[in-house]
Write a protein that binds this DNA or RNA. Sequence first.
RNA 1: GCCGCCUUAGCUCAAUUGGCAGAGCAGCCGCCUUGUAAGCGGCAGGUUGCCGGUUCGAUUCCGGCAGGCGGCUCCA
Length: 659
Amino acid sequence: MSAQITVNIAGSERSVPEQTTAADLFGDDRAVLVARVNGELRDLAHVLADGDNVEPVTAAEQDGLDVLRHSTAHVLAQAVQEVNPQAKLGIGPPIRDGFYYDFDVETPFNPEDLKALEKVMQRIINEGQTFHRREISDADALAELADEPYKCELIGLKGGAADDAAEGAGVEVGGAQLTIYDNLKKDGTRAWGDLCRGPHVPSTRVIGNAFKLMRSAAAYWRGSEKNPSLQRVYGTAWPSKDALKAYLDRLAEAERRDHRKLGAELDLFSFPDELGSGLPVFHPKGGIIKREMEDYVRRRHIEEGFEYVGTPHISKDGLFHTSGHLPYYADTMFPPMEFEGSNYRLKAMNCPMHNLIYKSRGRSYRELPLRLFEFGHVYRYEKSGVIHGLTRLRGFAQDDSHSYVTKEQAAAEIKHLLGFCLGLFRDFGLDDFYLELSTRDDSKKDKFIGSEEQWAEATATLEQVCVESGLELVPDPGGAAYYGPKVSIQARDAIGRTWQMSTIQYDFNQPERFGLEYQAADGTRQQPVMIHSAKFGSIERFLGVLVEHYAGAFPVWLSPVQVVGIPVAEDFNDYLWDVLKQMKEQGIRVELDESDDRFPKKIRNAAKAKVPFVLIAGAEDQAKNAVSFRYRDGSQENGVPIADAIAKVLAAIESKAQV
RNA sequence: GCCGCCUUAGCUCAAUUGGCAGAGCAGCCGCCUUGUAAGCGGCAGGUUGCCGGUUCGAUUCCGGCAGGCGGCUCCA
C-alpha cells in the first residue's frame, strides 16, 4: 500500500517507499557518515523526496571528514559542559586537520584538563549517542538558549552576516531555518544539545578512538581583539586510528625539521636575548649559507637586467610621508629618533629610497625598464606575540627590487619577474607552487589609495599574467597593500607545507607621490609605473624555509662544510689532508677531523652535522692512491681515485645536487 | 598587543610538603685508537632569567619585568 518514490542513488535510479531515509539506503555501510542530497549535505536520517539525487559520503572525502570533525567538536563541547556546566559555548567548526571549539570559562584549560576531557569524550563516544536534528523558531531558540549568550548573539546575526561574523560561524547558524542537534542516549533521553546547522554523523560511535585533543589557547570571540577572549580547545579526528597516528607522525616530522631547533643544533644562528626579540645573529656556518644565497641571487639579478644599489637603514620621516607609508603603517614602524630638529625612522621598506635614486636625474624612455635591486635591511615593529624564529622578525633583509616601466611595459615586466622568481626557487630545490592574487577590498576603501580605474587596470594586468602562467591561482580579496594589488608565490616544501615567498606588486601610487617621470619619444614627460618585487621575501625567512625543507641536510652547494675528512687512524691525517688541500684549492669547503675522538665517534659527529661528503682514508685507500666516501644515508663508496673524488664533489656543487 | 604555559651548567633534563642544586652530552686535561652513528679516566662548569615581596630560610609561594613556546589579532 505504501506509495513509492523514485530516487537517483549515486547515478542509478531506484524506486523506494515513501519516508525512506538516506540511512535506509546506506545504513549498512558504517563508513557512510552523511548523504549528499541534490548537492547538499544531509544527515542520514534525512527523509528523501521523489526525484532526489542521493550520494553516500564517507570520511574518504573532505566533506565527510569535515562532518566527522564537526561532530567530534560537539562531543568535546558536551564533555566540557558535563564537567563544567557554567561553560558558555562559542563556535566549534572543523578546520584543516581537525576542529576547535571555543568556550567562555572562568579558568583556562590546562593539559590535565584536556586529558580528563578526552576521557569524558571517549565515554560519550562509546555510549553511542545519536545526533537528532530539530527545527526551531528564532524565538524558541532564544528562549531555549537563554543561558548561552554567544549562541544568542549568533541567532541575532543569522543570515548573511553570520559568515562574516567569524570563521566557521556559518556552521552554527546557516540558512534561514535554525536547528538544534540533540544528542540522545540509548534509552532515548536527551544528554545534550547545541544550536547547529549540521549535518552530523549518525552516532558518536563512528568517531571511535581516532581523535585527540591537541592544545588549548585563547581566541577572540568573532575574531576581533575588541571582543572578549574565549578559551579555544583544538582537537583532531580521523577515520581510523592509523590515520590519526599518521597525522601525529607528520606533526612529529615537522617538529624534527623545525628551523629554530636545527639552527641551534647545526650552529647556524641564534636569537640572543640581549639583542631583543626578533633579531637574529648568524654564526659562521649559517653565515656561509646566507652568503651563498645572497651571492647567487645577486648574480642572477644582474643577469636578469637588474642594477645593484645601496641605501641606508634610516631616514628622515618626511620620506615616508611622501611615500604614503607613515599614515598607513606607522604602527609597524619603530618610533622616531629625534635629533637635529628632524625625526629619523628605521626604514620598514626600501621603495622610497629607490625612488630617490630614480629621481636623482632626468630619465629617458630609453632607460626603461629600469631595474634597481638590493638586499635592503628593513626593521618592522612586529607585535611581540607574532615573532617566530626566522619567519617573523623585527629586522631582516629583503631581496628587494623595483622595476620602473611604462604602463605598456608593465605586463611584460611582471611576466619576466614571475618567471625569474620561479626559476630561482627551482635552483634552490623548490618546484611546487601556486599563486595568490591579493586585491583591494572595495568595502574598506580608506585602506587603499588610488582611483578605481588605476586599481582595475593594475589588477587586470596582474591577473592576466597569472592566468597565462598556467599555475593554480587563489584569490585573496582585501589582501593588497594600500598602494596596489599584488601577486604572491606560495611554495610547497618537502612535507607539503606552503610558504609565502615572492611578492610582485603593481604600484601606480608612489610614482605619482614622488613625481617620478621620464621623457617619452615624443618629448612629453610621462609617469612610469613601478613594479615591486621581493623574490625570497626575506633572506632570513627563506633560509629558515630551506632548513625545514631539507631538514638541515642541504644540497652540497649550500652546505656550510661540504667535505669532512676522517682518517681511520691518526697516521693518515697527512695523506687525507693532502687530498683535502687539493679540494680546498678548488674552492670546496673542507674540514679535517684531527680530534682525539675515535673513528666511529668522528663518523657520528659528521653525521650529526649532516655533512654531505664524509671523506675517509686508511691503509687500503692510501695503498691505492684513493679515498672512500660515506654519504648521509650511510651508504659507502670505497677506493675512489683522488682525481675522481675531487671531480665528483665539484660536479655536485656545480649542478646544485643533493647527495 | 591579548590569553595560557614555560625559563635550573653551553645543550637536554633531575631536585621529597619551602631546608647546603644534580646527571648525561658538549668543553678542557690525560690515556687509548686501522674501517663507517658514542673508547676510558679526570677536571672545570650555577647569584636556579632579572627585580621586588612573604618567610628563620625561596629553585620551590606571591607580584612586576624580560625572553621563549602555543594560539588569537596582525603580517607593506
